[in-house]
Simulated scan of single mutants.
Amino acid sequence: MIIDHKKYDLFGKAIIQNIRIKAPFTFDFPITDNACFLYMLQGEMQYHRDEDRVNIPHKHALFLNCIQASKTISNLNRGAINEIMVINFHPDILKRIYDREMPVILQAPDQLVSNKSAEVLNSNFLIEKYIEGLLFLFSASGTG
Rank of each mutant, 00 (worst) to 15 (best):
N34R: 12
S117P: 06
L10E: 07
L41M: 08
R100S: 00
K95G: 01
P24Q: 04
L134Q: 08
S141H: 15
L62Q: 03
A108C: 09
C36T: 09
N124C: 09
S74Q: 13
F63Q: 09
G144C: 08
Y130E: 05
F27L: 15
I93H: 04
H48P: 02
I15E: 11
K116C: 07
P103E: 03
D99W: 11
S117W: 14
D110E: 13
V86Y: 03
P57V: 06
G142T: 12
D28Q: 15
D50M: 13
K95H: 07
F29W: 13
R96D: 02
D50L: 14
M102G: 00
L112H: 11
S123V: 02
P30H: 06
D50C: 03
D28M: 13
H58K: 14
E119M: 14
R78S: 06
H5D: 09
A69F: 07
I87Q: 04
I105Y: 10
D28K: 15
I67R: 15
K6C: 03
P109T: 00
K95R: 13
Y47D: 03
A14C: 10
D99C: 07
N124P: 05
L112G: 02
S114K: 12
K59R: 13
K13D: 05
D110W: 08
M85N: 02
I73L: 04
N122G: 00
Q111R: 11
I2G: 03
L64G: 01
P57Y: 12
A35C: 10
